[in-house]
Design a protein around this nucleic acid. Structure first.
Length: 814
RNA sequence: GCCGGGGUGGCGGAAUGGCAGACGCAGCGGACUUAAACUCCGCGGCCGCAAGGCAUGAGGGUUCGAAUCCCUCCCCCGGCACCA
């Protein structure tokens, strides 16, 4: 029986047994309270890398704990399997994206099973399966029906490498998030989702416990700003349309000395004078060729061109020039600004460069505003140069100016958001087809729900044309119009893969339903997700989209509650042994399959969790593995070796062992609930050492020993499930350890029998005294004063005061 | 520039107002062994013979007491960034 710990034997054995017994299945009809734990599903790149292990090793701990806490735990897994890599493989190597994806999924499923994670595989979803994407298409139709999906010609982010458009969220520093190509701007007619309709609600995070950094990232991304829309008359014959600007500082309107339009602004064409037509056209052309990176560079000196036209400030009738400049973005607010150089640094730089007037409209304590300014003053004291408003303090100015403008009909208070609508069209093959049909007679017609799914055709050819392969398949494109059966054409764009992952947590509750995306009853039973885990890199993409989808689904009446995931935990990034990001080019990649072959899944999981706090990530050093392996062997040893005579019931050793057991349970329970897995393991190591020592001494009570060993195995089970199960069985425990109750601790047994009080003189540690549990301050004081070392330091002086922290510390201040 | 996270032994880290360095790696010494591996025991911040002093990125402050709270600054990582 006491053979050696060999993970290569026990791990496959238990994995097979658990699967045969459907141990981790979450039954729908179960009276226990539910717990829905979800780990972000992977893209099936083909190989489970160490980053995946780091995520899923940690993610598996808490659902296992909740199961032992008596919950009916739903912990599913699946694959986010649409997307570019499959198509790139097809283009580069001529493989079929579907076959490539299937093979990758098969391999990653094998690797995930090798971890021994407690997934309920019977609920697996694969987003590129027609059974799944049929309902992604269904969601598109529901959003369309509710006016949340629309088509618009808009400047799109075009990735020349991927030959497709990107959502704003997928553009990182002007480059494609995936291929790193410099993003260009292109005007295309695209499908959008009206996520901005939920902007205000998305800023509220009521009832959810999400990390502050994620909430802040979303809040910044949504970018709410309060201000006013103001209408300026355009002093050009024939132009009646006002020039509308958004400003957060309507109180500076008297200081507006010029206007700036984005080069793409529709008014540019109408207002430009004959004389300025040449330079304006040249500037517009120049900016249209700039990449996002060039245009967005903040280091760049301001550029711009005068249109020759003027606008009239409605507040004071001033006639001010209209310029165009690329620092004004057509996509934000109205695409036009009133420039107040005295109080806005960008406008100041522009005015300085082009010799435009600078008029301060707030006085300042820092500067003499009658002299030329050296920089813009964003804040001031009271209004000046502002007609009847002069003397108004800054705090009251905005409201007063808006009220004035509203009364006269040329302005109103408004809220503007930085968030843009979600561009979901992709000119790609490997995605869910957008279920719409273009008919010359009836326009854009939705595919009837009964006709879903719109199947993705197979055996397509890939040419680097910039056109989706779908456009090259006439028998797929040409279709009967759903209204009258006349000739029509399918939409050939497919959907952004973030749509697939925006609702997958809903499908897991009823993954095989052929009639509906999921039944309302099961949604009510399982949703929302109680605990979600995944990387923080999805802060403004997946995690924002899925909240939007949920709110839309709530408004459709198919889910209840306002938020899809109640608690979120972001694990950090695991780095290579050199502290650098793991990458093949750096040669610092740790291959999980090799680690498992050499050390076993349990050891690898524990080592990953032991390197540091899970939310911080950090360097992974395989040399540290020996410490974990030593610990697992020590655990094996105390749990399998027959104990020597263990009969002394009242011994100090017995009391120490009991105390260690109950203290460890208390600490580990707290650690597991707050995802502090590194300190959890260190506490289990300490408890194991205590057991070893107790065994060597021999004089401990049998029941205390059994309680200590059983607790150790139960607490190790969520982190090292195989060895815990094996040892549990060898000790005659009831199968399975993973269905046993989590141990409880008794507070009295966890307490020390004596306190060691730290003795300080003037805040410096000079001695320690041992006192009984119930010792009064007077007793402690007596013990302290009896100390020879204390007497030496006090040297006969009278303490000015003493500070006593009961049971902990006694400080004598001289 | 703005926002967030961080800076502690040779290394990963622990301690969130009360003994700085738990736990582990690496290292050193010892036991066992013919020897090695395994295992076990012990030692490991710096200066100092010692008493003691000094140490948590730097400097200042609050406090009987600060890695922890406050102020000023430096460095590293991540996000956002001409958003009117």
């Amino acid at each position: 029986m006491a053979d050696r710990y060999d993970p290569r034997v026990i791990e496959p054995k238990w994995q097979a047994r658990w699967e045969a017994d459907r141990l981790y299945r979450a039954p729908d009809d179960d009276p226990r309270p539910k717990w829905y734990e979800l780990a972000m599903f992977p893209y099936p790149s083909g190989d489970l890398h160490t980053g995946h292990w780091y995520h899923y090793a940690g993610a598996d701990v808490h659902p296992r704990y909740m199961r032992m806490r008596g919950y009916n735990v739903l912990y599913p897994m699946g694959f986010d399997s649409f997307g570019l890599p499959a198509e790139n493989a097809a283009i580069q190597r001529g493989v079929d994206p579907a076959a490539w994806t299937r093979a990758n999924i098969a391999n990653m499923r094998r690797q995930l099973r090798m971890m021994g994670s407690s997934f309920d595989w019977e609920r697996e979803v694969v987003t590129s399966d027609p059974d799944y994407y049929r309902w992604t298409q269904w969601f598109f139709l529901q959003l369309h029906k509710r006016g949340l999906a629309y088509r618009a010609e808009a400047a799109a982010n075009w990735c020349p490498g991927c030959q497709t458009v990107l959502a704003n969220e997928q553009v990182v520093n002007g480059r494609c998030e995936r291929s790193d190509d410099v993003v260009q701007r292109r005007f295309l007619t695209q499908w959008f989702f009206k996520i901005t309709a939920y902007a205000e609600e998305l800023l509220r995070y009521e009832g959810i416990e999400w990390p502050e950094r994620i909430r802040l990232a979303q809040t910044n991304w949504i970018g709410r700003s309060e201000g006013a829309l103001l209408d300026f008359k355009v002093d050009v014959p024939g132009v009646t349309e006002p020039l509308r600007v958004f400003t957060t500082r309507p109180d500076t309107v008297f200081g507006a000395t010029f206007m700036v339009l984005a080069p793409e602004h529709p008014l540019v064409e109408q207002v430009t004078t004959a004389k300025q037509r040449g330079p304006v056209a040249a500037y517009v052309d120049e900016t249209s060729r700039e990449s996002e990176i060039e245009r967005m560079s903040t280091e760049k000196e301001k550029t711009g061109v005068f249109t020759g036209a003027y606008a009239i400030n409605p507040f004071n009738g001033a006639r001010i020039p209209i310029w165009i400049a690329d620092y004004v973005l057509v996509t934000y607010a109205t695409g036009a600004v009133m420039a107040v150089p005295a109080h806005d640094q960008r406008d100041f730089e522009f005015a300085t460069k082009f010799g435009l007037r600078i008029v301060p409209v707030f006085d300042s304590e820092e500067f003499d505003v009658t002299k030329p300014l050296e920089r813009a003053l964003p804040h001031g004291g009271r209004m000046i140069n502002s007609g009847s408003f002069d003397g108004t303090p800054e705090a009251e100015a905005v409201a007063k100016v808006i009220a004035f403008a509203e009364q006269r009909g040329y302005g109103k208070a408004t809220v503007n958001y930085r968030l843009r609508d979600w561009l979901i069209s992709r000119q790609r093959y490997w995605g869910a087809p957008i279920p719409m049909i273009h008919c010359d007679v009836h326009g854009i017609v939705a595919v009837p729900e009964a006709d879903l799914p719109v199947l993705l055709p197979e055996n397509v050819t890939f040419e680097p044309t910039g056109q989706s392969p779908l456009t090259q398949i006439p028998e797929w494109v040409n279709v009967a119009c759903p209204v009258d059966g006349g000739p029509a054409r399918r939409e050939t764009d497919t959907m952004d893969t973030f749509m697939c992952s925006s609702w997958y947590q809903m499908r897991y509750v009823d993954p095989h339903n052929p009639e509906r995306p999921f039944s309302t009853e099961l949604a009510r039973k399982w949703l929302p997700v109680d605990q979600y885990t995944g990387g923080a890199d999805h802060a403004v993409m997946h995690l924002l989209y899925t909240r939007f989808f949920w709110k839309a689904a709530r408004d459709m009446g198919i889910v209840e509650g306002d938020e899809p995931m109640l608690r979120l935990f972001n694990q950090g990034t695991l780095l290579g042994p050199d502290g650098q990001k793991m990458s093949k080019s750096r040669g610092n990649v740790v291959a999980p399959d090799e680690q498992v072959r050499e050390w076993g899944s349990d050891a690898f999981r524990c080592q990953l969790m032991f390197v540091g706090p899970w939310d911080q990530g950090g360097p992974y050093n395989p040399t540290g593995m020996s410490g974990i392996v030593r610990w697992l062997n020590r655990m094996w040893s105390v749990a399998t070796e027959p104990a020597r005579p263990l009969e002394d019931q009242a011994s100090e050793g017995t009391r120490d062992l009991r105390r260690s057991t109950h203290r460890t349970i208390r600490a580990v329970t707290s650690d597991i609930e707050s995802f502090r897995f590194n300190t959890l393991i260190s506490r289990l190591m300490e408890h194991t050492t205590t057991l070893q020592r107790a065994r060597e001494r021999g004089a401990v009570d049998r029941s205390a020993w059994n309680e200590a060993v059983d607790s150790l195995l139960l607490m190790a089970a969520p982190l090292a499930p195989h060895i815990a199960e094996e040892l549990w069985e060898r000790r005659g425990g009831v199968y399975s350890i993973h269905l046993q109750r989590w141990p409880d601790f008794e507070a009295e047994l966890a307490e020390e029998e004596q306190h060691e009080v730290v003795v300080q003189v003037n805040g410096k540690v000079r001695d320690h005294v041992i006192v009984g549990l119930g010792a009064t301050e007077a007793e402690v004081r007596a013990a302290v004063m009896a100390s020879v070392r204390v007497q030496e330091w006090v040297a006969g002086r009278t303490p000015r005061r003493v500070v006593y922290v009961p049971g902990k510390l006694f400080n004598i201040v001289l």
